[in-house]
Design a protein around this nucleic acid. Structure first.
Length: 459
RNA sequence: GGCUGGUUGGCAGAGUGGUUAUGCAGCGGCCUGCAAAGCCGUGGACGGCGGUUCGAUUCCGCCAUCAGCCUCCA
């Protein structure tokens, strides 16, 4: 029985889909004006893991992850580059797909872009105005009137009075209430725009997600996810817009992943303390990043550091080493390992605990390998199968262990050659030469392992 | 100031009202020409103060402390 921590109630709840056997899920995607960083990677690895597990659990999942391809930052960046904003977003969408693909993040079922959904957005704004939840201000912008929605603040646990009393609310004379937020923004000179009955302009950020999710998943769907920083105001605003527009409940389960920190501080664009995925991929294998992200529970905060990635590397090498030289075949059913693994995953997607099961399994596999038991194939198959549920251990073991991200200047062939030389030296009992070759390779980051079947190397 | 969520062994990180997490690192042993990998064994922990309880790291309260949100943000 799957339990999910629901931010609407701040407790774990048994997951019951609206339609039996089906899950409709929407996750807020990237605003594409720059390369994705490790913080972004966490959000999308997490929801990729959620999608994979839901499918494993037998649900027919429709997963939508949008792309915000029009907003102030995009316009600003495009101006700086002196390029059309479409060109800019196209480049970064391609880069994002490239990065995500390496990290084992599967494509969502639908990946809608805001600019492709302007009619749906305008339709929603129109309904909100008709129903009296939104108004056009003197400057042409259309705002949502927060005070008209009784449930405002329910998701984030905030009260409107507290928010109004807050020091950081901008005073904007065009708004009737400082809490109101923009649905349609009038275009300034030279800015991209779409025609509408409110004049030339572009959609606000919040309305995009409301419009695209309800358009594609229906007024009421199962899961809505995103980073913790989106809980307020973005998701709060989505609820307000959607429920006021449709008159129905919007989402049953709200899930938010925790942040990635750097030196105990949130990794973010504005703080400038971010590491892009492609930069990290110069030092670490993609799966090491995925493993690092999944080794903690998705709601906890994690600290990014080389030491962490190094530990993930060691852990992953242990798991792949266990799989080395073992055939895989039929996956044994109903094992205790699988029960434990699924028990962990059913407990609000506890990947940390689930990965511990993988290590237990690897230990038994190693033990069994030494005994040359017939159990070996079954255990290895099970290990791959369980890990595969969360998108891990999908590479060939030998290939993974021999792969390298940094160039050591040695080709696989030249290493094989040196290993062969050393093999001869060993046969001649020339330990000095054998050790000399090994030291040389060690210095280049190549680790040799002798066994009865010969010598194996890895990077 | 309001609201969230944390505080576990050297590091990372699960979990539990009384019993081994797990990984990395350490120590001892086995294996090995020596290593490495692997196996076996092993030390080491639950922020502070109260309360509930036969018993709390686990439940409750207070305090301290950290991070986050309240402005764009995964």
């Amino acid at each position: 029985m799957l339990k999910i921590y629901n931010n609407l109630t701040n407790q774990k709840e048994i997951f019951v889909p609206i339609e039996p056997g089906k899950v409709r899920m929407y996750v807020c995607g990237i605003t594409v004006y720059d390369y994705c960083h490790i913080g972004h990677s966490r959000a999308y690895i997490v929801f990729d893991m959620v999608t994979r597990y839901l499918r494993h659990a037998g649900y027919d999942v429709t997963y939508i992850r949008n792309i915000t391809d029009i907003d102030d930052k995009i316009i600003q960046r495009a101006n700086e580059n002196n390029e059309d904003f479409h060109e800019l977003t196209k480049r970064f969408i391609e880069a994002m797909h490239e990065d995500f693909n390496k990290l084992g993040i599967l494509m969502p079922d639908i990946e809608p872009k805001a600019t492709d959904n302007i009619p749906a957005i305008l339709k929603m704004i129109e309904t909100l105005i008709e129903k009296g939840f939104a108004y056009q201000a003197d400057n042409g912008d259309v705002y949502f009137a927060v005070s008209k929605f009784d449930h405002y603040g329910e998701l984030s646990g905030k009260r409107i009075e507290d928010l109004r009393a807050g020091e950081r609310v901008d005073i904007d004379t065009n708004k009737r209430d400082p809490m109101d937020f923009v649905l349609w923004k009038t275009a300034k000179e030279g800015e991209p725009f779409w025609e509408s009955s409110y004049g030339k302009g572009r959609p606000g950020w919040h309305i995009e997600c409301s419009a695209m999710s309800t358009e594609m998943l229906g007024n009421h769907f199962d899961i809505h996810g995103g980073g913790q920083d989106l809980q307020f105001p973005h998701h709060e605003n989505e609820i307000a817009q959607s429920e006021c527009c449709t008159g129905e409940k919007f989402v049953n389960y709200w899930m938010h992943n925790g942040f990635v920190r750097v030196n105990e501080e949130k990794m973010s664009k504005s703080l400038g303390n971010f590491f892009t995925i492609r930069d990290v991929l110069k030092e670490y294998r993609a799966e090491e990043i995925r493993f690092f992200i999944l080794s903690s529970h998705y709601r906890s905060q994690i600290n990014y550091s080389d030491e962490q990635l190094d530990q993930s590397r060691s852990g992953l090498e242990r798991l792949y080493s266990a799989l080395l030289d073992v055939e895989t075949g039929d996956v044994p059913q109903g094992t205790e390992y699988q029960q434990r693994f699924e028990g962990a995953m059913n407990d609000d997607f506890n990947t940390a605990d689930a990965i511990a099961v993988l290590f237990d399994l690897a230990r038994e596999l190693n033990r069994t390998k030494a005994e040359k038991s017939t159990e070996v194939v079954a255990l290895a198959s099970l290990l791959r199968y369980l890990a595969g549920i969360i998108g891990l251990l999908e590479a060939d073991a030998a290939e993974f262990l021999k792969s390298s991200v940094t160039d050591d200047g040695l080709s696989d062939e030249s290493i094989d050659q040196k290993v062969a030389q050393r093999h001869q030296a060993k046969a001649d009992k020339d330990w000095t030469l054998a050790d000399q070759i090994r030291d040389e390779l060690t210095g280049a980051g190549i680790i040799l392992e002798d066994s009865a079947d010969g010598t194996r190397w890895r990077r």
